[in-house]
Amino acid sequence: MDTSNPAVFVNAELLRMHVGRRVRAVIQVLRSDGGGSVIGKSTDEQQLVVKGHPSGPLSTFVEVIGIADSNQSIQAEIWTNFGDALDTACYNNVCQLANGDFKHLFI
């Protein structure tokens, strides 16, 4: 068992609280700038920059796990395609709860 390196559920709003730590976020891919970063929309509808090189083509919704770089960017380590249909509002609620009243169940 190892709980020393959790990846916290975040949206853009919550990202700023975890700069320098491991996070996970779902983004809707908007565009790739070709230079090793992807621009996406967070589950709370703000723009996020995800740095790194995905191993394959990305679906509409992508989960990235990595280190929170700044208020608006994540250095991604793991990319997971979440398909083309996802309830982002539901995911966003879980982000908020996982950083709020139920933080102790997660980190």
């Binding site: 068992m1 559920f9 398909g83 996802l86 309830d87 539901c90 995911y91 879980v94 709860l97 997660f106």
Partner: peptide, 27 residues
């Protein structure tokens, strides 16, 4: 002294909404 899971079912996720759903369920 260590906790471990003796697993009897491991299924790949087909609908990724299950992730949010699972954690909501935990709460």
């Amino acid at each position: 002294g260590k906790k471990q899971l003796m697993v009897y079912s491991v299924r790949p996720l087909t609908d990724y909404n299950e992730i949010a759903n699972h954690f909501a369920d935990c709460m």
